[in-house]
Amino acid sequence: MDANDLRDLGWTSEGPDYRGSRFHVRYVAHIATHRQGGVANLVTDECRDTRYAERMLQEWARDALKHSGLSQAELARRLTAHLHRAIDRAAVNKMTLGKRAIAGDEMIAIEEITGFPAPLENADGLIKVPMLDSLVSAGNLSPREPVKPEDVDRYVAASGLPPGDWIALSVEGDSMDLVSPPGSVIFINRADTRLVEGGFYVVAIEGDHGTTYKRYRASPEHFAPYSTNRDHGPVIIDDAFRVVGRVYRTMLDIGPHASRRGK
């Protein structure tokens, strides 16, 4: 780009001294900012915000350790037991120095272990979702009742979920294994109870069915399995039922310890 190009775009000689020739990088940045506010600043601001968030997490990791009185080695040992994957002292040390990213589930685990609140506002939309100990616990919740602490097995990290009232459950059995194999974690929005054809829901049904995770079918109205196992049949809606919430996400940990979580 040269001065003639700018004149063709309606630019005058005001502003930086373009010298009627090729432009230095800093002049092009000035042009981008002046011509389209925020274009040049956007990348700069994003980098600055990222660095700020990294520093905040680094300081938080150090403060959490200090608050708990734990050594880096002991925190590493407890994280390994909590997350079912190997985290050594060197990894914890790198977290406190800002040389290693802290994953969402690691943040929540550190919060639970140390009792020091995690700064989720600096974690790109990360939220802490209570994972209930069973489908029964989910079914026993009244529509507007908050989750009881005694029903929470642990907390799991999630990002990118829309606003809602979220709970998580671990899937047992194979009635939904085409989408959620045994051991999967499903995220349920309790604020979304409107039945939509083909949607996946956790529902509490009176009678023998109890609380179940199934796919809704409107014609004829029933809740269907989504399984490789043909022994599972549909749940015909003859009894009163209540929608606990719609399942928005299913997640499966296929790490070496994943078999411990599913049955």
Rank of each mutant, 00 (worst) to 15 (best):
D208H: 06
T33Q: 15
P182G: 09
G255W: 08
N229C: 10
T80G: 04
I237Q: 11
E197S: 05
R190N: 05
D49A: 13
K128P: 08
A168F: 00
E106Y: 06
H34K: 13
N189D: 15
L252G: 06
A90R: 07
I31A: 14
D5G: 02
S227C: 02
A204N: 15
G20N: 15
G245Y: 10
N41K: 10
V235N: 11
I205M: 15
F241E: 02
R260P: 07
E112K: 08
L57E: 14
Y248M: 08
E46L: 06
P163T: 03
Y52C: 03
E106C: 10
G104Q: 07
P234Y: 00
S137A: 15
N189V: 08
H34W: 11
H30F: 14
E172N: 11
E145L: 09
Y226N: 04
D231I: 11
D8G: 09
P220M: 14
S142W: 03
S219T: 12
E14G: 09
G69M: 00
Y27G: 01
N140M: 01
M251P: 03
E74Y: 10
G139E: 07
Q58E: 08
R55Q: 04
P225R: 11
V196C: 00
N189R: 14
V196R: 06
L141H: 02
E221L: 13
R89M: 02
I110R: 07
G199Q: 03
E145S: 11
F200V: 10
R77Y: 13
G20E: 14
T96D: 01
S180C: 11
V202I: 15
R217N: 07
S184P: 02
I236D: 15
T96Q: 12
R144K: 12
